[in-house]
Each structure stands twice: as structure tokens, then as C-alpha cells.
Amino acid sequence: MDIQDALRPRPPDQRPAHSNNKTKLKIEHLRKHFGAVLVLDDVNLDVKSGEIMCVIGQSGHGKSVILKHIMGLMIPDGGRIALDGATYSTPTSKPVDFEEPRRKLGMLFQGAALFDSKNVGENIAFPLREHTDLSENEIRDVVAEGLEMVGLQGIEEKMPSELSGGMRSRVGLARAISMKPEVMLYDEPTSALDPIMGDKINDLILDLRRKLGMTSIVVTHDMSSAYKIADHIAMIYQGRIIYAGTPGEIRASRDPYVQQFIRGQRKLHYAVEDEKVYEAPVDINKLRPAYRPGQHRG
């Protein structure tokens, strides 16, 4: 599938039938400050079981912070996160509250975050050795199976420093799925990769959903990737989800900020009507200087 195909809206009957209406992960009124800076401001997100939800938005607007809250790497200042209906992250949560949900969650970091002191095989085997009763032979099989799934058979002995960016991402993915998570989180999985390797990762995300039925949340600013893999896209702008819908709906959105982002335009436009774009006389920073990322908004 090339980019033009990917950009073309998929009719509802061609959309994957993996998702159902059961809510897998629910974020309600999530709020987070870093010092005086409000990074997440009343974020609400409802991810259905088996669907791929892409969170798009400019760098610095809080996309990765949402993932870190879901994983329990950060404690929210307000709001809550629930997995399968059970709330596990609130402002009063303790580290122990995240132990159970983490067994159902997996995360692929932007740079893969492989342990540099361990080879590829040990990287994937590490959590298996600690959290399962599998024998060494069984672990070896799971490692080989994981590497095969991401198309990297036979590289168990290589060190992370010997791998290219794309290979590292795929090994990171193999490590994350080795524990068979129910929800996979991807933090900008294609941003540091060339377009071809990026497309491979997109295919892998789709494959994992097809083979393992995983629910996925993908943080990205790569629109071709989002159009290709997403069932739903949510756009975050200055810490708030300002739009959520299917790829077709988001493309047809009349929200000027959404249109500015998905079209990759520096300047903000007043409106989008009949596929015609009417340019605003000022850019986004001049239009709303008080809302620039990194500033306190009270």
C-alpha cells in the first residue's frame, strides 16, 4: 500500500473487524503539571478493545506524557485511568497499584530503549526469566518466535549497538510482545526511521493486531502512518484532546488546528470548506500567544 492509498479513506466495510464496542482503556479528565506548566488539561480518551487508536499532535503538546501515565511511569495530578473497567491510576496511586495493569500493557519506546549491556536474545528473555516459570529451552523458543514475528530471525547474539534504528525498533517490539500484553503503546514508532522502515513498522502494528488481537495506542505525528493503521485518531493540542474520530472524519474536520496539523502547514487557517483553504493573516503563534506550549496557563 503506498501513501496515496493509505491517505484514501477506507470505507467502513473495509475497515478491520477486530474492534468491538467494549472499552479496554478509559482516560477521564487527566491532568498533569510539570512545575507551573500545565501539560495535560482534562484529557479524555476511550479506547475500544482490539482497536488501533492514534494520538496525533505537535511535539511538546503532551502525547508521550499520556502514554507515560497509562504505563504508570507518571502519577496524574487529576483524573483517572481505567483498564478493563478497573481504575488503577489516580493522583493517590502508589507504585504497587501499577503492578497488575503493567502485566497487561506493553510499550515500544521511541528509541526502542534496549538494554545496551545485554544482547538481543537476553533483552527479550529478561522479563520472561523474571516473570514466568518457562525453562531456558522454552524461553529460547519464545525469543526466536518473537524475532521471527518482527522479521529478524537469528540475531539473538547481536548487541543493540550493532543494530540499525529500524532493527532496534523491531527488537524493542519483540521484547514488548514477549509477555503477550493486551494493550500495546507505541511512542512515535516511525519518527526516527526512513519511510520504508516506517512502513514496515506500520505493517507490524497491523499484523500484531490481526494475529494477537492487541489493542494499540500509537502516539505519532506521522500522518501517513496514522491514516494507514488507525481505526480512530485523536488530536491533542496544548494538552487537550481537541478532536477524535475516524481517519475519514478527521480529514473532513473543519477545525482549523486539525487541518493545520494534518496538512502540515505552518500557518493557521480560518476554516476549511469545500476542500478550499482560506488562509488566515497571522500564524498560530501570533494568534494565540498565551497558549503556546511550555507556558503556564493557570
Binding site: 504505563m71 511511569l73 503493567r102 519506546f109 529478561f126
Partner: peptide, 16 residues
């Protein structure tokens, strides 16, 4: 450097 490259976060995600 493990912290800077998110390896510590990755450990936490894997419940290590």
C-alpha cells in the same frame, strides 16, 4: 545514560 535513553522506564514497563 540508562535514564536518558529510557532504559529505566523500559525496565519499569516490564515490571523489572
Amino acid at each position: 545514560s540508562m535514564k536518558a535513553t529510557e532504559q529505566l522506564d523500559a525496565m519499569a514497563c516490564l515490571s523489572l
